[in-house]
Design a protein around this nucleic acid. Structure first.
Lengths: 292, 292
DNA sequence: ATTTTTCGTTTAAATTATTTGAACAATTTG
DNA sequence: CAAATTGTTCAAATAATTTAAACGAAAAAT
Protein backbone atom coordinates (compact mmCIF):
# COMPACT_ATOMS: atom_id res chain seq x y z
CA UNK A 1 0.00 0.00 0.00
CA UNK A 2 1.58 3.24 -1.09
CA UNK A 3 1.06 6.27 1.03
CA UNK A 4 -0.64 9.23 -0.53
CA UNK A 5 -1.84 11.49 2.25
CA UNK A 6 0.95 13.95 2.73
CA UNK A 7 -1.46 16.84 3.13
CA UNK A 8 -2.92 15.29 6.24
CA UNK A 9 0.53 15.16 7.80
CA UNK A 10 0.42 18.93 8.22
CA UNK A 11 -2.76 18.59 10.22
CA UNK A 12 -1.17 15.79 12.19
CA UNK A 13 1.80 18.01 13.00
CA UNK A 14 -0.43 20.70 14.46
CA UNK A 15 -2.32 18.18 16.57
CA UNK A 16 0.96 16.68 17.75
CA UNK A 17 2.30 20.10 18.67
CA UNK A 18 -0.76 20.94 20.74
CA UNK A 19 -1.59 17.41 21.80
CA UNK A 20 -5.15 18.53 21.28
CA UNK A 21 -7.61 18.14 18.45
CA UNK A 22 -9.61 21.15 19.62
CA UNK A 23 -6.63 23.49 19.77
CA UNK A 24 -5.39 22.25 16.40
CA UNK A 25 -8.84 22.78 14.90
CA UNK A 26 -9.03 26.41 15.98
CA UNK A 27 -5.47 26.97 14.82
CA UNK A 28 -6.34 25.54 11.42
CA UNK A 29 -9.71 27.29 11.26
CA UNK A 30 -11.45 23.96 10.90
CA UNK A 31 -13.98 22.05 12.91
CA UNK A 32 -12.64 19.55 15.37
CA UNK A 33 -14.66 16.87 13.65
CA UNK A 34 -12.61 17.43 10.52
CA UNK A 35 -9.34 17.23 12.39
CA UNK A 36 -10.43 14.06 14.14
CA UNK A 37 -11.47 12.59 10.80
CA UNK A 38 -8.11 13.40 9.24
CA UNK A 39 -6.13 11.81 12.03
CA UNK A 40 -8.31 8.73 11.91
CA UNK A 41 -7.93 8.43 8.14
CA UNK A 42 -4.21 8.97 8.42
CA UNK A 43 -3.88 6.23 11.00
CA UNK A 44 -5.89 3.87 8.80
CA UNK A 45 -3.69 4.58 5.80
CA UNK A 46 -0.52 4.20 7.81
CA UNK A 47 -1.53 1.01 9.53
CA UNK A 48 -0.44 2.11 12.99
CA UNK A 49 -1.67 4.50 15.67
CA UNK A 50 -0.27 8.00 15.99
CA UNK A 51 -1.93 8.88 19.27
CA UNK A 52 -2.75 7.00 22.38
CA UNK A 53 -6.18 8.09 23.54
CA UNK A 54 -6.11 7.75 27.26
CA UNK A 55 -9.20 9.23 28.83
CA UNK A 56 -9.79 12.58 27.25
CA UNK A 57 -6.14 13.25 26.57
CA UNK A 58 -3.84 12.58 23.64
CA UNK A 59 -0.35 11.17 23.78
CA UNK A 60 1.93 10.55 20.84
CA UNK A 61 2.85 6.93 20.32
CA UNK A 62 6.56 6.23 19.66
CA UNK A 63 5.63 5.82 16.00
CA UNK A 64 3.82 9.14 16.10
CA UNK A 65 6.85 10.83 17.62
CA UNK A 66 9.13 9.62 14.86
CA UNK A 67 6.68 10.55 12.15
CA UNK A 68 6.18 14.11 13.37
CA UNK A 69 9.90 14.68 13.40
CA UNK A 70 10.54 13.36 9.93
CA UNK A 71 7.42 14.79 8.35
CA UNK A 72 8.07 18.27 9.71
CA UNK A 73 11.62 18.25 8.43
CA UNK A 74 10.66 16.88 5.04
CA UNK A 75 7.63 19.05 4.35
CA UNK A 76 9.51 22.10 5.61
CA UNK A 77 12.22 21.32 3.10
CA UNK A 78 9.64 21.45 0.37
CA UNK A 79 8.13 24.66 1.70
CA UNK A 80 11.55 26.21 1.91
CA UNK A 81 12.33 25.31 -1.67
CA UNK A 82 8.99 26.69 -2.80
CA UNK A 83 9.63 29.95 -0.96
CA UNK A 84 13.08 30.12 -2.49
CA UNK A 85 11.59 29.60 -5.93
CA UNK A 86 8.90 32.19 -5.34
CA UNK A 87 11.48 34.76 -4.39
CA UNK A 88 13.83 33.56 -7.12
CA UNK A 89 16.67 32.70 -4.80
CA UNK A 90 19.66 31.15 -6.54
CA UNK A 91 19.93 27.35 -6.60
CA UNK A 92 22.45 25.71 -4.30
CA UNK A 93 25.89 24.99 -5.70
CA UNK A 94 25.98 21.32 -6.73
CA UNK A 95 29.33 19.62 -6.34
CA UNK A 96 30.06 16.13 -7.61
CA UNK A 97 32.91 14.27 -5.90
CA UNK A 98 34.02 10.99 -4.41
CA UNK A 99 32.54 10.32 -0.97
CA UNK A 100 36.11 9.53 0.05
CA UNK A 101 37.29 13.03 -0.82
CA UNK A 102 34.25 14.59 0.75
CA UNK A 103 34.65 12.96 4.14
CA UNK A 104 38.43 13.01 4.33
CA UNK A 105 39.47 16.27 2.76
CA UNK A 106 36.54 18.55 2.11
CA UNK A 107 34.30 17.99 5.10
CA UNK A 108 36.84 19.01 7.77
CA UNK A 109 37.51 22.23 5.87
CA UNK A 110 34.05 22.99 4.68
CA UNK A 111 32.86 25.01 7.63
CA UNK A 112 35.39 27.66 6.73
CA UNK A 113 33.61 28.14 3.44
CA UNK A 114 30.09 28.01 4.82
CA UNK A 115 31.03 30.40 7.61
CA UNK A 116 32.50 32.88 5.15
CA UNK A 117 29.61 32.50 2.67
CA UNK A 118 26.50 31.49 4.55
CA UNK A 119 24.36 32.72 1.68
CA UNK A 120 25.70 30.05 -0.67
CA UNK A 121 23.90 26.74 -0.35
CA UNK A 122 25.87 23.60 -1.13
CA UNK A 123 24.76 20.21 -2.34
CA UNK A 124 27.01 17.20 -2.78
CA UNK A 125 26.36 14.32 -5.13
CA UNK A 126 28.49 11.19 -5.27
CA UNK A 127 30.83 10.76 -8.21
CA UNK A 128 32.34 7.30 -8.35
CA UNK A 129 34.45 7.45 -11.46
CA UNK A 130 35.41 9.94 -14.09
CA UNK A 131 33.10 8.55 -16.74
CA UNK A 132 30.11 9.68 -14.72
CA UNK A 133 31.03 13.37 -14.92
CA UNK A 134 29.22 13.87 -18.19
CA UNK A 135 25.97 12.40 -16.96
CA UNK A 136 25.82 14.28 -13.67
CA UNK A 137 24.36 17.73 -13.65
CA UNK A 138 26.76 19.37 -11.22
CA UNK A 139 28.12 22.92 -11.18
CA UNK A 140 31.52 21.69 -10.06
CA UNK A 141 33.14 18.25 -10.26
CA UNK A 142 36.18 17.13 -8.30
CA UNK A 143 38.01 13.90 -9.03
CA UNK A 144 41.26 12.06 -8.55
CA UNK A 145 42.93 11.73 -11.93
CA UNK A 146 46.08 12.38 -13.93
CA UNK A 147 46.73 14.89 -16.65
CA UNK A 148 45.20 13.71 -19.90
CA UNK A 149 42.33 11.75 -18.40
CA UNK A 150 39.87 14.63 -18.41
CA UNK A 151 38.61 16.01 -21.68
CA UNK A 152 36.87 19.20 -20.65
CA UNK A 153 38.70 22.28 -19.33
CA UNK A 154 39.98 21.50 -15.84
CA UNK A 155 42.48 22.56 -13.22
CA UNK A 156 44.72 20.69 -10.81
CA UNK A 157 44.02 21.40 -7.15
CA UNK A 158 46.99 19.54 -5.71
CA UNK A 159 49.16 16.54 -6.43
CA UNK A 160 48.18 13.42 -4.53
CA UNK A 161 50.19 10.34 -5.44
CA UNK A 162 48.83 6.92 -4.60
CA UNK A 163 50.31 3.55 -3.83
CA UNK A 164 48.97 0.05 -3.13
CA UNK A 165 47.61 -0.36 0.38
CA UNK A 166 46.51 -3.36 2.43
CA UNK A 167 45.64 -4.28 5.98
CA UNK A 168 48.14 -5.65 8.51
CA UNK A 169 47.80 -9.26 7.41
CA UNK A 170 48.51 -8.42 3.81
CA UNK A 171 51.39 -6.16 4.84
CA UNK A 172 52.88 -9.11 6.74
CA UNK A 173 52.65 -11.34 3.71
CA UNK A 174 54.31 -8.62 1.64
CA UNK A 175 57.19 -8.47 4.12
CA UNK A 176 57.66 -12.23 3.86
CA UNK A 177 57.21 -12.88 0.17
CA UNK A 178 57.68 -9.48 -1.45
CA UNK A 179 55.02 -7.31 -3.06
CA UNK A 180 55.56 -8.67 -6.57
CA UNK A 181 54.29 -12.10 -5.62
CA UNK A 182 51.45 -10.95 -3.38
CA UNK A 183 50.08 -8.39 -5.79
CA UNK A 184 49.59 -11.02 -8.45
CA UNK A 185 47.69 -13.32 -6.11
CA UNK A 186 45.60 -10.91 -4.03
CA UNK A 187 42.36 -9.36 -5.35
CA UNK A 188 42.80 -5.81 -6.59
CA UNK A 189 40.03 -3.45 -5.57
CA UNK A 190 38.94 -0.88 -8.15
CA UNK A 191 36.30 1.79 -8.55
CA UNK A 192 35.29 0.45 -11.94
CA UNK A 193 36.71 -1.69 -14.70
CA UNK A 194 37.44 1.46 -16.68
CA UNK A 195 39.86 2.89 -14.17
CA UNK A 196 43.45 3.16 -15.32
CA UNK A 197 45.12 3.56 -11.94
CA UNK A 198 46.16 -0.07 -11.52
CA UNK A 199 47.36 -0.33 -15.12
CA UNK A 200 49.57 2.69 -14.58
CA UNK A 201 50.95 1.27 -11.38
CA UNK A 202 51.74 -2.11 -12.93
CA UNK A 203 53.52 -0.37 -15.78
CA UNK A 204 55.52 1.75 -13.36
CA UNK A 205 56.45 -1.35 -11.32
CA UNK A 206 57.45 -3.27 -14.41
CA UNK A 207 54.80 -5.92 -13.85
CA UNK A 208 52.25 -7.33 -16.24
CA UNK A 209 48.72 -6.15 -15.42
CA UNK A 210 47.24 -8.99 -17.45
CA UNK A 211 48.62 -11.53 -14.98
CA UNK A 212 46.87 -9.97 -11.98
CA UNK A 213 43.86 -11.40 -10.23
CA UNK A 214 40.42 -10.45 -11.40
CA UNK A 215 39.67 -7.43 -9.25
CA UNK A 216 36.73 -6.69 -7.04
CA UNK A 217 34.91 -3.55 -8.09
CA UNK A 218 33.49 -1.39 -5.29
CA UNK A 219 32.19 1.87 -6.65
CA UNK A 220 31.80 3.86 -3.44
CA UNK A 221 35.24 4.99 -2.36
CA UNK A 222 34.54 5.07 1.38
CA UNK A 223 33.26 1.52 1.25
CA UNK A 224 36.37 0.57 -0.68
CA UNK A 225 38.64 1.87 2.08
CA UNK A 226 36.73 -0.26 4.55
CA UNK A 227 37.03 -3.26 2.26
CA UNK A 228 40.82 -2.94 2.31
CA UNK A 229 40.82 -2.66 6.11
CA UNK A 230 38.64 -5.75 6.23
CA UNK A 231 41.27 -7.60 4.22
CA UNK A 232 39.25 -8.04 1.08
CA UNK A 233 42.16 -7.02 -1.13
CA UNK A 234 44.62 -4.35 -2.17
CA UNK A 235 43.62 -0.91 -3.36
CA UNK A 236 45.40 2.21 -4.50
CA UNK A 237 45.08 5.00 -1.97
CA UNK A 238 46.68 8.37 -1.56
CA UNK A 239 47.72 10.17 1.59
CA UNK A 240 44.13 10.91 2.60
CA UNK A 241 44.12 7.52 4.32
CA UNK A 242 46.87 8.76 6.65
CA UNK A 243 44.69 8.36 9.77
CA UNK A 244 44.25 4.65 9.06
CA UNK A 245 47.94 4.25 8.27
CA UNK A 246 49.07 5.91 11.47
CA UNK A 247 46.70 3.83 13.54
CA UNK A 248 47.99 0.65 11.89
CA UNK A 249 44.74 -0.36 10.23
CA UNK A 250 46.21 0.27 6.79
CA UNK A 251 49.72 0.00 5.33
CA UNK A 252 51.36 1.44 2.26
CA UNK A 253 52.79 -1.62 0.56
CA UNK A 254 55.29 -0.16 -1.89
CA UNK A 255 57.84 2.58 -2.56
CA UNK A 256 56.47 2.98 -6.06
CA UNK A 257 53.93 5.81 -6.09
CA UNK A 258 51.79 7.13 -8.88
CA UNK A 259 53.28 10.60 -8.77
CA UNK A 260 51.38 12.11 -11.63
CA UNK A 261 47.96 11.72 -10.04
CA UNK A 262 46.17 14.38 -8.06
CA UNK A 263 42.86 16.04 -7.44
CA UNK A 264 41.35 17.96 -10.33
CA UNK A 265 38.40 20.28 -10.50
CA UNK A 266 36.23 21.34 -13.36
CA UNK A 267 33.20 23.58 -13.66
CA UNK A 268 30.36 23.57 -16.11
CA UNK A 269 31.25 26.15 -18.72
CA UNK A 270 27.73 27.59 -18.52
CA UNK A 271 28.39 28.38 -14.86
CA UNK A 272 31.83 29.86 -15.07
CA UNK A 273 30.51 33.35 -14.73
CA UNK A 274 28.44 32.42 -11.67
CA UNK A 275 29.62 34.22 -8.55
CA UNK A 276 29.11 31.24 -6.25
CA UNK A 277 31.10 28.95 -8.54
CA UNK A 278 33.94 31.46 -8.62
CA UNK A 279 33.98 31.86 -4.86
CA UNK A 280 34.00 28.12 -4.28
CA UNK A 281 36.77 27.52 -6.80
CA UNK A 282 38.88 30.23 -5.22
CA UNK A 283 38.29 28.78 -1.81
CA UNK A 284 39.28 25.33 -3.08
CA UNK A 285 42.52 26.77 -4.45
CA UNK A 286 43.30 28.52 -1.16
CA UNK A 287 42.65 25.43 0.92
CA UNK A 288 44.65 23.27 -1.46
CA UNK A 289 47.62 25.58 -1.17
CA UNK A 290 47.41 25.84 2.62
CA UNK A 291 47.08 22.13 3.15
CA UNK A 292 50.02 21.08 0.99
CA UNK B 1 -0.12 31.92 0.87
CA UNK B 2 0.85 28.69 2.54
CA UNK B 3 1.29 25.64 0.41
CA UNK B 4 -0.97 22.68 1.11
CA UNK B 5 -0.88 20.43 -1.93
CA UNK B 6 1.83 17.95 -1.15
CA UNK B 7 -0.19 15.06 -2.56
CA UNK B 8 -0.18 16.63 -5.99
CA UNK B 9 3.60 16.72 -5.91
CA UNK B 10 3.66 12.96 -6.36
CA UNK B 11 1.64 13.33 -9.53
CA UNK B 12 3.95 16.11 -10.62
CA UNK B 13 6.96 13.87 -10.10
CA UNK B 14 5.53 11.19 -12.38
CA UNK B 15 4.76 13.73 -15.07
CA UNK B 16 8.25 15.19 -14.73
CA UNK B 17 9.81 11.75 -15.01
CA UNK B 18 7.92 10.96 -18.19
CA UNK B 19 7.68 14.49 -19.49
CA UNK B 20 4.22 13.44 -20.55
CA UNK B 21 0.78 13.85 -19.07
CA UNK B 22 -0.53 10.88 -21.00
CA UNK B 23 2.18 8.49 -19.87
CA UNK B 24 1.87 9.71 -16.30
CA UNK B 25 -1.89 9.22 -16.42
CA UNK B 26 -1.62 5.59 -17.50
CA UNK B 27 1.08 4.99 -14.90
CA UNK B 28 -1.17 6.43 -12.20
CA UNK B 29 -4.30 4.74 -13.53
CA UNK B 30 -5.97 8.09 -13.95
CA UNK B 31 -7.37 10.01 -16.84
CA UNK B 32 -5.09 12.50 -18.49
CA UNK B 33 -7.63 15.19 -17.78
CA UNK B 34 -7.13 14.61 -14.08
CA UNK B 35 -3.39 14.77 -14.35
CA UNK B 36 -3.57 17.95 -16.36
CA UNK B 37 -5.93 19.44 -13.80
CA UNK B 38 -3.58 18.57 -10.94
CA UNK B 39 -0.56 20.15 -12.59
CA UNK B 40 -2.55 23.26 -13.41
CA UNK B 41 -3.83 23.54 -9.84
CA UNK B 42 -0.35 22.96 -8.49
CA UNK B 43 1.07 25.70 -10.67
CA UNK B 44 -1.67 28.07 -9.53
CA UNK B 45 -0.98 27.34 -5.88
CA UNK B 46 2.75 27.69 -6.34
CA UNK B 47 2.60 30.88 -8.34
CA UNK B 48 5.08 29.76 -10.99
CA UNK B 49 5.08 27.40 -13.94
CA UNK B 50 6.46 23.88 -13.63
CA UNK B 51 6.38 23.03 -17.31
CA UNK B 52 7.00 24.92 -20.47
CA UNK B 53 4.38 23.86 -22.99
CA UNK B 54 6.04 24.18 -26.31
CA UNK B 55 3.91 22.74 -29.06
CA UNK B 56 2.67 19.34 -27.94
CA UNK B 57 5.66 18.63 -25.72
CA UNK B 58 6.49 19.33 -22.10
CA UNK B 59 9.73 20.71 -20.71
CA UNK B 60 10.53 21.31 -17.08
CA UNK B 61 11.16 24.92 -16.20
CA UNK B 62 14.23 25.59 -14.02
CA UNK B 63 11.81 25.99 -11.13
CA UNK B 64 10.19 22.68 -12.00
CA UNK B 65 13.57 20.96 -12.07
CA UNK B 66 14.45 22.17 -8.61
CA UNK B 67 11.05 21.28 -7.21
CA UNK B 68 11.09 17.70 -8.54
CA UNK B 69 14.46 17.11 -6.96
CA UNK B 70 13.57 18.43 -3.55
CA UNK B 71 10.06 17.03 -3.46
CA UNK B 72 11.21 13.53 -4.41
CA UNK B 73 13.88 13.55 -1.74
CA UNK B 74 11.55 14.93 0.91
CA UNK B 75 8.53 12.77 0.24
CA UNK B 76 10.73 9.71 -0.10
CA UNK B 77 12.14 10.47 3.33
CA UNK B 78 8.62 10.36 4.70
CA UNK B 79 7.82 7.16 2.84
CA UNK B 80 10.99 5.59 4.12
CA UNK B 81 10.17 6.48 7.69
CA UNK B 82 6.66 5.12 7.28
CA UNK B 83 8.01 1.86 5.89
CA UNK B 84 10.48 1.66 8.73
CA UNK B 85 7.65 2.20 11.22
CA UNK B 86 5.46 -0.36 9.53
CA UNK B 87 8.18 -2.97 9.78
CA UNK B 88 9.12 -1.77 13.25
CA UNK B 89 12.68 -0.95 12.37
CA UNK B 90 14.65 0.59 15.23
CA UNK B 91 14.90 4.35 15.39
CA UNK B 92 18.18 5.93 14.36
CA UNK B 93 20.72 6.56 17.08
CA UNK B 94 20.46 10.21 18.08
CA UNK B 95 23.69 11.84 19.14
CA UNK B 96 23.88 15.33 20.60
CA UNK B 97 27.21 17.12 20.23
CA UNK B 98 28.92 20.36 19.38
CA UNK B 99 29.04 21.04 15.64
CA UNK B 100 32.72 21.73 16.21
CA UNK B 101 33.36 18.23 17.50
CA UNK B 102 31.23 16.71 14.77
CA UNK B 103 33.05 18.31 11.88
CA UNK B 104 36.56 18.19 13.29
CA UNK B 105 36.79 14.92 15.14
CA UNK B 106 33.82 12.69 14.49
CA UNK B 107 33.06 13.29 10.83
CA UNK B 108 36.47 12.21 9.49
CA UNK B 109 36.21 8.97 11.49
CA UNK B 110 32.54 8.30 11.09
CA UNK B 111 32.70 6.30 7.90
CA UNK B 112 34.54 3.59 9.79
CA UNK B 113 31.52 3.17 12.02
CA UNK B 114 28.90 3.36 9.30
CA UNK B 115 30.89 0.93 7.15
CA UNK B 116 31.11 -1.56 10.01
CA UNK B 117 27.49 -1.09 11.04
CA UNK B 118 25.47 -0.02 8.03
CA UNK B 119 22.30 -1.19 9.75
CA UNK B 120 22.58 1.46 12.45
CA UNK B 121 21.15 4.80 11.41
CA UNK B 122 22.66 7.91 12.94
CA UNK B 123 21.22 11.34 13.59
CA UNK B 124 23.13 14.29 14.94
CA UNK B 125 21.61 17.20 16.80
CA UNK B 126 23.55 20.29 17.82
CA UNK B 127 24.43 20.69 21.48
CA UNK B 128 25.81 24.10 22.24
CA UNK B 129 26.42 23.93 25.94
CA UNK B 130 26.14 21.43 28.72
CA UNK B 131 22.97 22.91 30.14
CA UNK B 132 21.09 21.81 27.06
CA UNK B 133 21.75 18.11 27.61
CA UNK B 134 18.73 17.68 29.84
CA UNK B 135 16.33 19.20 27.35
CA UNK B 136 17.55 17.30 24.30
CA UNK B 137 16.15 13.87 23.66
CA UNK B 138 19.32 12.18 22.47
CA UNK B 139 20.50 8.62 23.02
CA UNK B 140 24.07 9.76 23.43
CA UNK B 141 25.53 13.17 24.28
CA UNK B 142 29.12 14.21 23.80
CA UNK B 143 30.55 17.42 25.22
CA UNK B 144 33.73 19.18 26.15
CA UNK B 145 33.84 19.51 29.92
CA UNK B 146 35.82 18.81 33.04
CA UNK B 147 35.23 16.32 35.79
CA UNK B 148 32.49 17.55 38.10
CA UNK B 149 30.57 19.56 35.53
CA UNK B 150 28.27 16.73 34.51
CA UNK B 151 25.72 15.39 36.95
CA UNK B 152 24.52 12.21 35.29
CA UNK B 153 26.69 9.10 34.85
CA UNK B 154 29.31 9.81 32.24
CA UNK B 155 32.68 8.70 30.91
CA UNK B 156 35.77 10.51 29.65
CA UNK B 157 36.65 9.79 26.03
CA UNK B 158 39.97 11.58 25.97
CA UNK B 159 41.70 14.53 27.54
CA UNK B 160 41.68 17.66 25.41
CA UNK B 161 43.18 20.72 27.07
CA UNK B 162 42.35 24.16 25.74
CA UNK B 163 44.09 27.49 25.68
CA UNK B 164 43.23 31.01 24.49
CA UNK B 165 43.47 31.43 20.74
CA UNK B 166 43.38 34.41 18.41
CA UNK B 167 44.09 35.32 14.82
CA UNK B 168 47.45 36.65 13.57
CA UNK B 169 46.74 40.28 14.42
CA UNK B 170 45.86 39.45 17.99
CA UNK B 171 48.87 37.12 18.25
CA UNK B 172 51.08 40.02 17.17
CA UNK B 173 49.64 42.29 19.81
CA UNK B 174 50.21 39.56 22.39
CA UNK B 175 53.87 39.34 21.34
CA UNK B 176 54.26 43.10 21.77
CA UNK B 177 52.30 43.79 24.93
CA UNK B 178 51.98 40.37 26.56
CA UNK B 179 48.87 38.27 26.94
CA UNK B 180 47.91 39.64 30.33
CA UNK B 181 47.23 43.07 28.92
CA UNK B 182 45.57 41.96 25.72
CA UNK B 183 43.27 39.46 27.34
CA UNK B 184 41.77 42.12 29.56
CA UNK B 185 41.06 44.44 26.63
CA UNK B 186 39.97 42.04 23.86
CA UNK B 187 36.49 40.57 23.73
CA UNK B 188 36.29 37.02 25.03
CA UNK B 189 34.15 34.70 22.94
CA UNK B 190 32.04 32.17 24.82
CA UNK B 191 29.41 29.57 24.08
CA UNK B 192 27.11 30.93 26.73
CA UNK B 193 27.28 33.06 29.81
CA UNK B 194 27.07 29.93 31.93
CA UNK B 195 30.28 28.43 30.66
CA UNK B 196 33.03 28.10 33.22
CA UNK B 197 35.97 27.64 30.85
CA UNK B 198 37.16 31.24 30.91
CA UNK B 199 36.74 31.51 34.67
CA UNK B 200 38.92 28.44 35.10
CA UNK B 201 41.54 29.82 32.77
CA UNK B 202 41.66 33.19 34.52
CA UNK B 203 42.07 31.43 37.85
CA UNK B 204 44.85 29.27 36.49
CA UNK B 205 46.60 32.33 35.01
CA UNK B 206 46.24 34.26 38.23
CA UNK B 207 44.14 36.97 36.61
CA UNK B 208 40.86 38.45 37.70
CA UNK B 209 37.99 37.33 35.50
CA UNK B 210 35.84 40.22 36.72
CA UNK B 211 38.17 42.71 35.03
CA UNK B 212 37.81 41.13 31.59
CA UNK B 213 35.86 42.60 28.73
CA UNK B 214 32.22 41.77 28.33
CA UNK B 215 32.34 38.70 26.13
CA UNK B 216 30.60 37.99 22.88
CA UNK B 217 28.44 34.91 23.09
CA UNK B 218 28.31 32.76 19.95
CA UNK B 219 26.50 29.53 20.65
CA UNK B 220 27.45 27.53 17.57
CA UNK B 221 31.00 26.32 18.03
CA UNK B 222 31.94 26.21 14.35
CA UNK B 223 30.79 29.79 13.93
CA UNK B 224 32.81 30.70 16.97
CA UNK B 225 36.00 29.35 15.44
CA UNK B 226 35.35 31.48 12.40
CA UNK B 227 34.72 34.49 14.61
CA UNK B 228 38.17 34.11 16.14
CA UNK B 229 39.75 33.79 12.69
CA UNK B 230 37.88 36.92 11.66
CA UNK B 231 39.47 38.74 14.59
CA UNK B 232 36.33 39.26 16.61
CA UNK B 233 38.02 38.19 19.79
CA UNK B 234 39.78 35.49 21.80
CA UNK B 235 38.30 32.07 22.47
CA UNK B 236 39.38 28.93 24.25
CA UNK B 237 40.10 26.12 21.82
CA UNK B 238 41.68 22.71 22.11
CA UNK B 239 43.91 20.86 19.67
CA UNK B 240 41.05 20.21 17.25
CA UNK B 241 41.82 23.59 15.70
CA UNK B 242 45.28 22.27 14.73
CA UNK B 243 44.62 22.69 10.98
CA UNK B 244 43.99 26.39 11.45
CA UNK B 245 47.01 26.76 13.72
CA UNK B 246 49.36 25.05 11.27
CA UNK B 247 48.08 27.15 8.40
CA UNK B 248 48.59 30.31 10.44
CA UNK B 249 44.99 31.39 10.59
CA UNK B 250 44.86 30.77 14.32
CA UNK B 251 47.46 30.99 17.12
CA UNK B 252 47.62 29.54 20.59
CA UNK B 253 48.27 32.60 22.73
CA UNK B 254 49.50 31.10 25.99
CA UNK B 255 51.46 28.33 27.70
CA UNK B 256 48.76 27.97 30.27
CA UNK B 257 46.39 25.19 29.24
CA UNK B 258 43.23 23.94 30.87
CA UNK B 259 44.57 20.43 31.39
CA UNK B 260 41.62 18.96 33.19
CA UNK B 261 39.19 19.42 30.31
CA UNK B 262 38.35 16.80 27.74
CA UNK B 263 35.55 15.17 25.81
CA UNK B 264 32.95 13.30 27.79
CA UNK B 265 30.17 11.05 26.71
CA UNK B 266 26.98 10.03 28.40
CA UNK B 267 24.06 7.86 27.39
CA UNK B 268 20.44 7.94 28.40
CA UNK B 269 20.07 5.41 31.16
CA UNK B 270 16.96 4.02 29.48
CA UNK B 271 19.08 3.16 26.44
CA UNK B 272 22.08 1.62 28.09
CA UNK B 273 20.96 -1.87 27.22
CA UNK B 274 20.40 -0.89 23.56
CA UNK B 275 22.75 -2.74 21.24
CA UNK B 276 23.31 0.24 18.93
CA UNK B 277 24.21 2.51 21.86
CA UNK B 278 26.69 -0.07 23.12
CA UNK B 279 28.31 -0.48 19.71
CA UNK B 280 28.64 3.25 19.21
CA UNK B 281 30.10 3.81 22.68
CA UNK B 282 32.62 1.04 22.12
CA UNK B 283 33.55 2.48 18.77
CA UNK B 284 33.97 5.92 20.34
CA UNK B 285 36.30 4.42 22.95
CA UNK B 286 38.36 2.64 20.29
CA UNK B 287 38.69 5.72 18.12
CA UNK B 288 39.55 7.88 21.14
CA UNK B 289 42.33 5.51 22.11
CA UNK B 290 43.74 5.25 18.58
CA UNK B 291 43.71 8.96 17.99
CA UNK B 292 45.53 9.94 21.16
C1' DA C 1 -20.30 15.00 45.70
C1' DT C 2 -22.23 17.18 42.06
C1' DT C 3 -22.49 20.30 38.49
C1' DT C 4 -20.18 22.47 34.57
C1' DT C 5 -16.98 22.45 31.21
C1' DT C 6 -14.00 20.29 28.09
C1' DC C 7 -12.46 16.46 25.65
C1' DG C 8 -12.47 13.44 21.25
C1' DT C 9 -15.63 10.81 18.51
C1' DT C 10 -19.44 9.98 15.74
C1' DT C 11 -23.21 10.86 12.61
C1' DA C 12 -25.74 12.60 8.40
C1' DA C 13 -25.93 16.35 5.52
C1' DA C 14 -23.66 19.99 3.01
C1' DT C 15 -19.99 21.39 0.63
C1' DT C 16 -15.61 20.96 -2.05
C1' DA C 17 -12.49 18.79 -4.62
C1' DT C 18 -11.20 15.54 -7.76
C1' DT C 19 -11.97 12.50 -11.62
C1' DT C 20 -13.96 11.15 -15.74
C1' DG C 21 -14.84 10.87 -20.60
C1' DA C 22 -15.64 13.10 -24.62
C1' DA C 23 -14.65 16.94 -27.61
C1' DC C 24 -11.10 20.09 -29.17
C1' DA C 25 -7.16 22.39 -31.49
C1' DA C 26 -2.43 21.92 -32.17
C1' DT C 27 1.33 19.23 -33.50
C1' DT C 28 3.95 15.17 -34.77
C1' DT C 29 4.43 10.93 -37.18
C1' DG C 30 4.16 7.83 -40.99
C1' DC D 1 -1.50 14.79 -46.48
C1' DA D 2 -3.87 11.62 -43.38
C1' DA D 3 -3.69 9.35 -39.07
C1' DA D 4 -2.31 9.33 -34.59
C1' DT D 5 -0.99 11.70 -30.53
C1' DT D 6 -0.30 15.62 -27.70
C1' DG D 7 -2.24 18.62 -23.64
C1' DT D 8 -6.35 21.28 -22.52
C1' DT D 9 -11.06 22.14 -21.57
C1' DC D 10 -15.82 21.35 -20.23
C1' DA D 11 -19.99 19.57 -17.84
C1' DA D 12 -21.26 15.70 -15.34
C1' DA D 13 -20.28 12.12 -12.04
C1' DT D 14 -18.00 10.66 -8.25
C1' DA D 15 -15.30 10.88 -4.15
C1' DA D 16 -13.46 13.26 -0.41
C1' DT D 17 -13.56 16.55 3.00
C1' DT D 18 -15.88 19.63 6.16
C1' DT D 19 -19.46 21.05 9.01
C1' DA D 20 -22.58 21.33 12.87
C1' DA D 21 -24.85 19.07 16.21
C1' DA D 22 -25.26 15.29 19.38
C1' DC D 23 -22.94 12.09 22.44
C1' DG D 24 -20.52 9.82 26.31
C1' DA D 25 -16.52 10.09 29.05
C1' DA D 26 -13.49 12.40 31.91
C1' DA D 27 -11.64 16.78 34.21
C1' DA D 28 -12.27 20.91 36.53
C1' DA D 29 -14.88 23.81 39.23
C1' DT D 30 -18.13 24.44 42.60
Amino acid sequence: MTFYSYDMLRTFQVVAANLSMTAAASQLNQSKGSVSYQIKTLETHLGFALFERTNARLHLTPEGQRLVRVSIISLDQIDQEIEALRYKEPAPLTIALQTYFLSRWLSPRLMRFTAAHPEIGLRFVPLNFIGEIEGIDADISICWAKEGMIDAPHERLFACPACPTGNDKIAERVLEDGLDKIILSAPLLLDSSESTGWQDWFNRAGLDYENSQQGLSIADSNSRVQAVIDGQGIALWDRLVAPEVSSGRLHYLSDIWLDDYGYYVQAKKSNLESKAVGLFLNWLRDESRDAN
